[in-house]
Design a protein around this nucleic acid. Structure first.
Lengths: 105, 105
DNA sequence: TATACTTTTGACGTTTCTTGTCAAGTCAAT
DNA sequence: ATTGACTTGACAAGAAACGTCAAAAGTATA
C-alpha cells in the first residue's frame, strides 16, 4: 500500500508533473519527494500540508492518513499492536476529558 | 492518569519497596524510575519487560499499555487523532495481510 | 530543631533518530 | 550515445531520547 505516498504520486502523474516541478513548488529536494512518494521516507507535517495545498485536497484527510500510517509503521512489529491502539484511544479520551475540565476551571 | 507509571508506583508501594530497591533490581537509576513512575519520562521496552518480570505481571498487558500510551501522547495534540487511529488500524491489517502472504510464497 | 531517610528536580553529556542534500547511478525514449 | 526523469546511497547537521549525577525538597522520628 503506502497510502499517502502512492496517493500523491498518482496525483502528480495524473497532472503530468515532474518530481522536479512539485518538489520546487513545495520547496523540497526532488530526491526527498521521490522517497516520500515511494514510502522510503516519511513526510513532515509541514510537507503534508504543502502537498494538500498544492494538490487542492482536504488537509485533514491527508493529515489523518499521514498520522495513521506513522503510527502503524511505528508499532507494526509489536505483538500487541492492536491492543495498543485500543489503549491509545482510551488514553486519548481521558486526555481530552482532562483538557475540557482544565478549560472550565 | 498516566496508566503505566501510576500502576508500577502502586505496585511498588503495595510491596513497600523503595525506589532504590526496585531501580537496582531492574538495573536503572532511581531518579529515572522516579520519573517513569510519575510519567515524566517514558520507559523503554526493555524496562517495561524488566518491570513486568520483577512485579510478576503479564508482560503483554504491560507492553500494550506502554505502547498505547506512547501513541496517545504522540498524537494527542493533533486534530485528527481519532481518525488517525482508525487508519493506523487499517494500515496494520493491510501490513499483516502482506506478511502472511510473504510467508506462504 | 536536628538527623536520617526517601523522593524529586534540573542540568548535563551521550547516543540515537530524523531530516535534507548532494552526487552518482539507473532507466527509458529518441 | 545523449537527454531527461527518477532513484539510490552516503553524508552532515540538528533534534530528540536516554541515563546519570548532585543538589534540593519533602517526611518522619528522636
Amino acid at each position: 500500500m503506502n497510502g499517502l505516498g502512492s496517493m500523491i504520486r498518482v496525483l502528480r502523474e495524473h497532472r503530468q508533473l515532474y518530481l522536479r516541478q512539485v518538489a520546487s513548488a513545495i520547496d523540497i529536494d526532488q530526491a526527498l519527494l521521490s522517497k516520500i512518494e515511494r514510502g522510503e521516507r516519511r513526510a513532515t507535517k509541514e510537507q503534508v500540508l504543502a502537498l494538500a495545498n498544492f494538490y487542492k485536497i482536504a488537509k485533514h484527510k491527508l493529515l489523518a492518513i499521514w498520522l495513521g500510517e506513522k503510527i502503524a509503521y511505528e508499532i507494526k512489529d509489536e505483538e500487541n499492536a492492536i491492543d495498543a491502539l485500543k489503549i491509545a484511544e482510551e488514553t486519548l479520551e481521558y486526555l481530552n476529558g482532562k483538557k475540557i475540565q482544565e478549560n472550565n476551571v
